[in-house]
Simulated assay, not measured.
Amino acid sequence: MTAEFDHVTRNETEMDSIHERWLGDRNRGRGGHEYEESWAGEQCGGCRFWVPLAGRVGHDYGVCANALSPFDGRVRFEHDGCDVFADAGRWLIPEDFG
């Protein structure tokens, strides 16, 4: 017998847990002494290679699609970044892809 379940979570507590867990994988935490102010304008959400996830979680997370990035193919926080940032000219959101 196969268990039936809703594969898409809509539970706010679970979504918050996912958010907190994924935050630990950031490349550029703003609280560190090594954080450079120039990085503030080079965040994943404004990169042309940023593909936001769908729904509520997509307003905070997306996938990097830059083959030159060490994060290519990985889920990233919108305010994170890397050394191969490519400016999209604006912040990208899930509705841009729907």
Results as ranks from 00 to 15, higher is better:
E20R: 14
C47D: 01
H79S: 12
T13A: 15
G62N: 00
D96K: 01
G62V: 02
G32D: 15
G89V: 05
A88C: 04
C64T: 01
N66Q: 04
Y61Q: 00
W22P: 00
V51T: 09
A3G: 07
H7I: 11
F71M: 13
E78C: 11
S17M: 13
H19R: 11
H79L: 13
V57A: 08
D72E: 13
E78P: 00
A86D: 06
S38L: 10
E20C: 06
D6W: 05
T13L: 13
G89Q: 08
E36A: 14
R56N: 06
C82T: 04
A86R: 15
E34D: 15
R21P: 00
R74G: 02
D60L: 14
F85N: 00
D25L: 14
W39R: 07
V84D: 00
R56I: 02
D25Q: 11
R21Q: 11
H59D: 02
G73F: 05
E36I: 15
D87A: 13
G31T: 09
F85C: 01
E20D: 12
G98T: 14
G58W: 00
D16M: 11
G45F: 06
H7C: 11
G73E: 03
R90D: 03
W39F: 13
W22G: 01
I18A: 14
V63L: 02
F85T: 00
I18D: 03
Q43I: 15
Y61P: 01
T13G: 12
R30C: 08
A54T: 15
F77N: 05
G29S: 10
E37F: 08
R74E: 10
G81T: 03
Y35I: 07
F49W: 12
D80E: 01
Y35G: 06
G46H: 11
G89R: 10
R90N: 02
D80R: 02
M15E: 13
S38G: 06
M1W: 06
A86F: 01
